[in-house]
Structures are given as C-alpha cells and as structure tokens.
Design a protein around this nucleic acid. Structure first.
Lengths: 136, 136
DNA sequence: TCAGTTGTAACTATAATGGTTACATCAAAT
DNA sequence: ATTTGATGTAACCATTATAGTTACAACTGA
C-alpha cells in the first residue's frame, strides 16, 4: 500500500465530530483510536489545521471542527493531506523526433486529467457527515 | 511522482498500433521513443503480454496487438500494469474498543471503493483508439 | 513553577520504483 | 553450424515516499 494519510485524516475528523468533551481529544487519545504514534496524529492534524478544517492551540488539549460535518467534503480532506500530485505519473522527456513521443505528453495529460476529474467529483459528492451517518 | 508504468504502457501500445513495419519494433527502438532503458520496455511489455494485449516471441523482433485498438480499454491497460491495490490505503488495526475505530474500516472500504469505481468507470470509457485519435 | 499539551525538526526502517548490468534462450541470416 | 541480434528475466542499486520514533521548544492553566 501507498499512503494512509487520507484514511487517518477521516478517522481523526470523525473522532472530533463525535466526541462531545473536546478536552478528551489529545493527540495521545486520538492515536490510541487510530493505533499509531501521537506525532503522526499531530502531523496530520497540522495539515487539517492549515487547510482550515480544524482548530487547535499549542499547549491546550482539544481539537475542534471549524465547519459543520456536512460542509466538509471528502475532497476538502483529500486536498488537505495529499500533495497536489497527479493520480498517474507521465514519463519524462519522450523523444520529440518520434510522432508518438512528440504528442503523447499532452494526450496523457488530458486523458489522465479526465480520470482524475471523475475521481475528484466522487470525492466532492461525499462529506464528513456521510461518513458519520455510516458509522452509526 | 509515483509510478509511470501506466503512461509508458500506453506509449508502447500507441507505438505498436501506429507502426506498420512490425519488425522495427524492438525494445531498443521503443525505448528510444519513450526515453528509457530497453529493459524497462521489455518489463512492461511482459506485463502487457501476460494480460493478452500484445504478442511477441523470444528471439524475434517485433510486438503486435492481439486486439483492435477500439477493443482495448484504458482499464485493461491499467489492470495489466498496476498491482491490484486500492487507490487509498486504510490504516491497519484501529482500536476496536473505540466506536469510531471499530467501524471506520468497513466504512472507508465502502467509500474508497465507490471512489475507485468512479475512476475505473472513466478508464473503461476510453480505449487505445481514443488515444490514437488524439495523437493525430 | 510545574505538569501536560501542541508543533515541528530530525532520524530510521521499510517499500516501491526505474534504471542498469548480466545472461540464458531463441530465431534467422550467413 | 556459427554468428548476430533479439526477447525474457533475475539481480542489484539509487532514489523517493511514508510511517514510526525520539527529542525538544513553546505554550497554557493549575
């Protein structure tokens, strides 16, 4: 497998959304639920904070959502924790002396772009609230 | 970037489809167009061959498509060269003592599955022929 | 002042990937 | 038959991404 940051981010946000006593939500506590190291939680929380999805203050325990769960799409979360890289890489510098080599780059950019669009549209169609509904 | 096998596979198949003199299609020649090492080409060709998309014979130069370009979907190519792994990984062993931890696994499997479906459907909707059309 | 927490830098182990060398195997031309 | 040139594949290396970990500065409230 490649990368579980997205999954962990959703886990973290779900915990925050469903825990009424916010002071319980230390990175240690969250790490216990995710089953990882507290620093991993703080690292991902830091990304979610930069993206404006949660708030926290140094020295004080507790994280809070800054938006309602129905206003946080999975796309928002995805963009918060993933590098803005493409789904599929395109090999560098194909031979411009070859007809295929000359045009494959832009062609693949277009095609891969439409695939990525399809994926991102699906991510946009679901929210943290949809996740919470499924958890019940 | 992560993985350009898919892009290289499409490049290889496009070259095979558009080259009339099949004997020209050595791994060396293809590598010259892709701008990589011939072994990389043979490695990916081997996967395409296992998937039944092309044919070749040891000792004889030349690769050939075994199907018409309109009958090779991008999904077929994708499946030929990518490990059957999920788009997003799910963290292992979340805490079953926690309500979220207990249910997040199946929830994420469902949600990520629908996202992957969306992506794969888009891949199924395009073929090698659509790529060739764009190359003109 | 002190205990507990977040934020972050730094290091490590692991895994995936692409490039490379090497070589066995095979087919066709000579 | 020998030689030449090709595919098929194993093996190794360098690079990169990731998750886990240790360490510690900065901060808050008791």
């Amino acid at each position: 497998m490649v990368n579980s940051r997205f999954a962990v981010a959703i886990h973290i946000l779900s915990l925050i959304a469903t825990t009424s006593d916010k002071a319980l939500l230390t990175s240690d506590f969250i790490a216990g639920s995710v089953n990882t190291n507290p620093v991993v939680v703080r690292r991902i929380s830091s990304l979610l904070k930069k993206a404006g999805l949660i708030s926290s203050r140094k020295g004080i325990s507790g994280y809070e959502l800054t938006k309602k769960p129905e206003d946080i799409s999975l796309y928002d979360i995805y963009r918060a924790v993933e590098e803005p890289k493409e789904l599929f890489a395109i090999h560098q510098a194909p031979n411009p002396a070859c007809s295929v080599g000359r045009q494959i780059g832009t062609t693949l950019t277009d095609v891969f772009g439409s695939v990525q669009q399809a994926m991102e549209n699906e991510l946009r169609s679901q929210t943290l609230q949809s996740i919470l509904d499924r958890l019940k």
